[in-house]
Write a protein that binds this DNA or RNA. Structure first.
Length: 261
DNA sequence: AGAAAGCCTCGGCCGC
DNA sequence: TGCGGCCGAGGCTTTC
């Protein structure tokens, strides 16, 4: 579920922990999968003071007086900041909460806890992540950066849909956002990146910004314009054509064969 | 039962 | 022929 706007809302939640000292941390073997060992997280975070938060694409960063801590949320991860009141009410959107799905977190000196709730165990904790592996952030992306990303980075053979999802090119575009911006720009998702015209690139950039803006207005939810048609047998809301379903870059892609070309 | 909104690894293939 | 980079396939994991 979490796409970039959800991660941004988690970051804002984590902002409430700025100033707090971490008394304890823990991670299960999946949350710790990118770390040297299961105990690395607990050992590294103990005693750190949280000094700020940040985000690059879908990677949430917790700045401290020591190393930068980071969290990825995978497909189903949610960040919780609990209090004595309990956590159920703090969920962002409609979810079920199960204690067993808390895969790790941080305990703060004031008693609160930052928790990773993640049913499908694809969320990960990181320490001192290498931000050079990520492209510019999608939320703050400039038109110039977008142009560079689509023209001077790597070969031009990959389908534009796959390229948009490549986090090392632009950080933060997920599968739904990718479909939505291609839909709005009227571009066939299979088009090789190098075959896009300057006009098409411009339209894609405009579509990206417009989509993010609209989603932000709706509270960061993941419902775009063509999402109502995002179902087998769906009808394009623009021209009434049948929506097509393809796998592009390994991801399910919904698109309209009539106006996306 | 099959697919899932994220990410990582692996191996084939292409071009220099 | 050799090498490196690009790019797609497949896997992870659990749930609905």
């Amino acid at each position: 579920m979490p796409e970039i706007l959800e991660i941004e809302s988690y970051r804002q939640l984590a902002d409430h922990a700025v100033g707090a000292t971490i008394t304890k941390g823990w991670a299960d073997i999946y949350a710790a999968k990118k770390l040297p060992s299961v105990g690395t997280w607990a050992k590294a975070v103990k005693g750190l003071r949280i000094t700020g938060t940040n985000r690059r694409g879908k990677l949430m960063l917790i700045e401290t007086n020591g190393p930068t801590l980071a969290m990825r949320f995978g497909m189903t991860g949610v960040l919780l900041l609990d209090s004595d009141a309990g956590i159920e009410g703090l969920f962002y959107g409609p979810h079920t909460f199960k204690k067993d799905w808390v895969r790790g977190g941080l305990e703060l000196a004031d008693g609160r806890r930052l928790l990773l709730h993640d049913p499908r165990r694809l969320g990960r904790f990181e320490i001192e992540p290498d931000l050079n592996e990520l492209g510019p952030d999608a939320l703050t992306l400039t038109k110039k950066e977008f142009g560079v990303a689509l023209t001077s980075v790597r070969g031009g053979g990959a389908a534009i849909k796959a390229r948009l999802l490549d986090q090392s090119v632009i950080a933060g575009i997920g599968n739904l956002l990718g479909d939505e911006m291609l839909f709005r720009a009227g571009i066939d998702p299979r088009t090789p990146t190098g075959h896009l015209t300057p006009t098409q690139r411009d339209e894609l950039f405009v579509a990206l910004k417009a989509t993010l803006k609209q989603l932000q207005k709706r509270g960061g939810s993941h419902m775009g314009n063509h999402m109502s048609a995002r179902t087998p047998g769906g009808i394009c809301p623009l021209d009434g054509g049948p929506m097509r379903i393809s796998v592009i870059g390994g991801r399910t892609t919904y698109w309209c064969g009539q106006h996306q070309h």
